[in-house]
């Protein structure tokens, strides 16, 4: 049965789009049929991170308004056959999204894909609430930093009250994805530790993505990090998170600073 995921955070710039692209490509490489849907109407970027920015013809709003069929708007990834993108509109505003229209499109996507990953805009306004509206599960992207943790707490509250599942008295499954984690800084007490964040948000951990220059390099070239450098530390962390989403039991190890200290001793940069 298809799973609808929302990748959300409240705060901007924490890695929602990066994580949507990376997890989508990771699941597709596991043989799953995946569509990533951009809900950031007016400020779309998932197309750019996926490297499909020059192939956008129709978008989510066109499909909702009946201007285009879903099949016409879906963009198939050039590297992975079973990975598609449904872009957001760049010219309209978020009011062009309707609750019924979004529900209709998600229902149709459920018949064609195993995973529907909705990339939420930042904030807690209409675009963000519509992105989470039909979700079965949520991935809450959090940086180990005070404003991000606070906003994640707020988003968790919305997931428990504003989603269709919550209104039916059910629960949206929640997974915490900690991104931009720096083991060395956490060890020095300069950054909230994984335990701190978990204790404050009391949400199960899906994965820890270490801070890495690979992420910027991947977005520069328009490839999810799980496609551009599959052996890099963030890619490995995303692959493991994707397999946990599928229900596999993969032990989660908090990245430790020892390796980077060793690397520094030998004059190499940490991955």
């Amino acid at each position: 049965m298809a799973q609808v995921l929302v990748v959300t955070s409240g705060k901007g710039g924490v890695g929602k789009t990066t994580s949507t692209a990376a997890l989508g490509a990771a699941l597709a490489q596991e043989g799953e049929r995946v569509v990533v849907v951009d809900f950031d109407v007016g400020l779309r970027n998932l197309d750019l991170v996926m490297g499909a920015e020059r192939r956008v013809v129709f978008d989510l709003i066109n499909v909702i308004h009946g201007v285009a069929k879903l099949q016409q708007a879906l963009i198939r990834d050039k590297r992975l056959d079973n990975l598609c993108l449904l872009p957001a509109s760049q010219t309209r505003d978020k009011d062009a999204l309707t609750e019924n229209g979004v529900a209709r499109v998600i229902a149709e996507l459920r018949t064609k894909f195993d995973w529907i990953i909705c990339d939420s805009p930042a904030g807690i306004e209409r675009g963000a609430t519509l992105a989470m509206r039909n979700a079965d599960a949520a991935i809450i992207v959090t940086n180990p930093e005070v404003s991000s943790v606070r906003d994640s707490d707020r988003i968790i509250g919305l997931l428990d009250s504003k989603t269709a599942k919550a209104e039916r008295g059910e629960r949206v499954a929640k997974h915490l994805l900690i991104t931009r984690y720096s083991p060395a800084r956490a060890a020095r007490g300069e950054m909230l530790s994984i335990d701190d964040v978990l204790e404050i948000l009391s949400t199960p951990l899906l994965g820890i993505i270490p801070e890495s220059e690979e992420v910027l390099r991947a977005s520069n070239v328009g490839a999810p990090v799980t496609l551009s450098n599959t052996l890099s530390a963030p890619a490995v962390a995303y692959f493991e998170a994707a397999r946990r989403l599928k229900g596999e039991d993969i032990p989660l190890v908090v990245p430790s600073a020892s390796r980077s200290i060793l690397n520094r001793l030998f004059g190499r940069k940490a991955a």
Binding site: V146, R150, D153, S161, A186, R188, I200
Partner: peptide, 28 residues
């Protein structure tokens, strides 16, 4: 290690705990 080099993370942690305890009670 932390005992000798106390960073700012414990301060962040305590501020968040107090703030969120309040925000959760007034939510809705």
């Amino acid at each position: 290690f932390n005992f000798f080099r106390r960073g700012s993370a414990p301060v962040a942690r305590e501020r968040l705990q107090i703030l969120l305890a309040h925000e959760r009670t007034v939510r809705g």
